[in-house]
Amino acid sequence: MKSPKQVEQIIGRARLQADLATDERILGAARAALADRMNHRPQTSGPGPALWRTIMESKVTRYSVAATVMLAAALVLLNPFGRNSVVLGEVAQKLSETRTLMHKEHRLAWRPGEDKPFFRAEVKKYFSSDVGMVEEQYDPNGVLIHRICFIKESQEFVIVLPRVKKYIRLPVPDGVYERFVAMMVPSGLVSYFTSQPYTKLGRSHFRDFEAEGFEVPHVDLSWVPSYAKYLFPIQDLTARLRIDVETNMPVAIEMVIDADRGLMNGFQKVHAEFTAYDFQWNAELPEGVFDPNIPADYTRIDLGSMARENAAWLGVGTLPVVGFVAHRRRRRHKTLASA
């Protein structure tokens, strides 16, 4: 029998080497992916890097802002319009026939009385009624802020936070996954727009589309649990839907949010506007987009029993907790390092 040292040497000599054809296949695909990324980079405009750097250097806002907008998005996605009556029937019918969706979203947030937004982000979202949902939020420089995956197969919720090199995995309780994702995939959008009385905004141009606008002002949020209101107290939320008059499909979904002082928005009042656009219905989604693919050096955040108990409020409870825990741990590490 060989010694452990000899065995290690034998294993170490084992190699698999690629030849030119393998190189060509892998490099060709990687080059294409690189070119695709360069052609579809988010546009940066306005006070980008300098402003962003200033915001991110603020300990208070650094994570809470990101968490705030995520929470607001989750609140809106869960039930923005109620489910009472059927309106926009043809749109609803068309949406119900779609299985996948890719779209972008622009997110801005202001402090009261300030003209310039202190937070900007570009978001890419991928939905599949069969697989789940992925959201990627980028800063104005195109750097990934967070990646959130709802994975149907494993029934789990994964958030990857590259800035702090951390991730979180949470199992999703029975029934919650279906409820949450059903509201995010195209068929779920149907119920968003089959709801409370709305106001017609008339026709307007949105990007290259002539669109008919609908608005639901003062969305009812009475169903939001009290602890979520403490975390992010939304005072008012208005949702707008813009439908292309030619195709009868949505070209924009806008959400305007006013929030009072809460834990997750750094105890400051916030006005936020999200605009979802560039919808690609039944799109062929990028391969592997639903794979969390967590890098080697990322550490896991254990949210503990509190978050698990509140897992029924995924998207309302966990998202802000992530920002908060990441912020606290970072502070703790810094404190220890400087001690």
């Binding site: 490099l27 992916a33 990324r37 750097v143 990934l144 090199k165 592997g288 794979d291 967590i294 080697a296």
Partner: peptide, 30 residues
């Protein structure tokens, strides 16, 4: 193949790639 395509499409930020080799190995292992 998938790791490189993903890496090219979305290179991790510089702080996440202090150890590029370790990062790619982890991607492959995952």
């Amino acid at each position: 193949h998938d790791v490189f395509v993903h890496f090219a499409a979305d290179p991790a930020d510089l702080r996440a790639t202090k150890n590029l080799r370790g990062y790619l190995l982890r991607c492959v292992a995952n």
